[in-house]
Computed example of a mutant assay.
Amino acid sequence: MPLLQLRDATKDDLQVTYAITEDAMRGYVEEAWGKWDPAEQREKHRVNFTPETHRIILVEGDVAGFVAIEEFPTHVWLVKLYLLARCRGQGIGSQVLQGVLKDAKARGKPVTLRVLRVNKRAQALYAGHGFHVTEETPDRLLMASGA
């Protein structure tokens, strides 16, 4: 298992988190909605990027991805868990997810998330860590863990 660290994101991470988002999600967005509009996606990312909720995933000192988490009174919302393609399939996502679940369990809260229907790989990751589907929309599945 590679050496993994998380560091708090800063406003200077806007571009790197956009690059990770494009690498991780472009294919799924194109499959789900037919196109990836770079200008639209950059603007969405800029508006939604909140450094205080994001942590950069480092593997042996190199940026591998990021995770974004928001805490609510009743649950922990896993907003994003994106890895660069070269970092997938190595257990990094599982390691990060286990940390999120452990922290939420210590707070007595379930973890919730939403995942694109076309992203079968992420769905399998989450199901393998005990998540179950709680709601469905035409484009997404909402999933939750136990507390």
Score class of each variant (00 low, 15 high):
T74A: 15
H45D: 07
T53R: 13
E70D: 11
E30F: 02
P73Q: 01
Q5Y: 01
Q15H: 06
T53C: 05
L81Q: 01
A64H: 05
E52L: 01
L14C: 07
A32P: 03
P73G: 08
A32C: 01
V59F: 09
A9R: 06
G34I: 12
W33P: 05
K11L: 09
K11M: 00
E60S: 05
E43N: 14
A24N: 02
A85Y: 01
L14F: 10
A32G: 05
Y28S: 10
E60V: 00
R46D: 04
I69S: 02
R55K: 14
G65N: 05
E71C: 08
P73L: 08
F49T: 03
R55Q: 15
R7V: 12
L58R: 10
E40N: 11
G27Q: 07
R26K: 14
P51V: 10
R26G: 00
G27W: 01
D62P: 00
A19S: 11
V16M: 10
D37S: 09
D62S: 09
L83K: 12
D12V: 00
V67N: 05
Q41D: 01
P51K: 08
F49I: 10
G34S: 05
V63M: 13
W36A: 00
H75L: 08
P73A: 08
Y28R: 00
L6P: 04
R42L: 13
V79G: 04
Y28N: 09
R55V: 04
Q41S: 01
R46F: 06
T53N: 11
A9W: 02
L6H: 07
I57H: 12
E40C: 09
D13L: 06
V76Y: 08
E43H: 11
D12Y: 06
A32E: 13
A68S: 14
G61E: 11
V63C: 08
D62W: 02
R7Y: 07
Q15I: 03
P38E: 02
H54Y: 15
K44G: 03
R46Y: 14
Q5C: 03
D8I: 00
C87A: 14
Q5F: 05
T50G: 02
L6M: 11
E40D: 10
T21C: 09
I56N: 08
I20V: 14
A32V: 05
L6D: 11
